[in-house]
Amino acid sequence: MEKPWEIDLTLYDDEEELLEGLRRHDRLACTCLLKRFAPRLYRLALQLMADPDEAEDVLQEGFIQACAHIDDFQGKSGLGTWLHRIVLNTALMRLRRKQPAMVELQEQPDEAQTRLAEALVDHTAEPGHELLALELREKIDRALSALPDTLRAAFVLRDIEGLSTKEAAAALGIAEPALKVRLHRARLALRNALEPYIQNIAEEGT
């Protein structure tokens, strides 16, 4: 029985060949597309949505859109960059649809939010030098997920995805100063939530 999820990835090593396969609606090309890009894009969706089910929905919607518009892909950027933009826009559209009034309220400095984030971290832990062990990555993910949507989106776009301030502000449809303030709020919340690890790294540098 065919198991397309276990195929040889090198079948479509060349991006042009992969695109040709996708345009022919080749099943193996779809498999290669997923194997090559889905993990990275799922991570992006999860960071933005902070919910595994919503992240999966974003990924599904993004890949369906991509396959539906594969003939429109002109190759001006890499396929990965194009997919990244589709998934990012899909996630941001979903965030915008989520009760904007509540989001704005939650963006105020919120002691409860800070306490929640701090509660995610065991302050008695003594993190060693293997700072990006699975445990810490999970703590960063959990601290991110405790942020309000607006702060998390600003932080993910600017500090994790590496967009410029101008690009991140444009993606979120806000002015640059507003983006900067959201970013500082997010960073302060994460400084508090991840304090033992931040302290440890600060001491490494002294």
Binding site: P39, Y42, L59, R137, I201, G205
Partner: peptide
């Protein structure tokens, strides 16, 4: 220190997709 931690976070290996997600996506596509 936060920037240093995030640089390590960005470079960390991607965790695998949730169980069966890839196959469900493929079936959908």
């Amino acid at each position: 220190a936060l920037s240093t931690m995030l640089a390590r976070y960005r470079q960390a290996e991607q965790p695998p997709l949730p169980h069966d997600l890839e196959r469900r996506l493929l079936d959908l596509l």
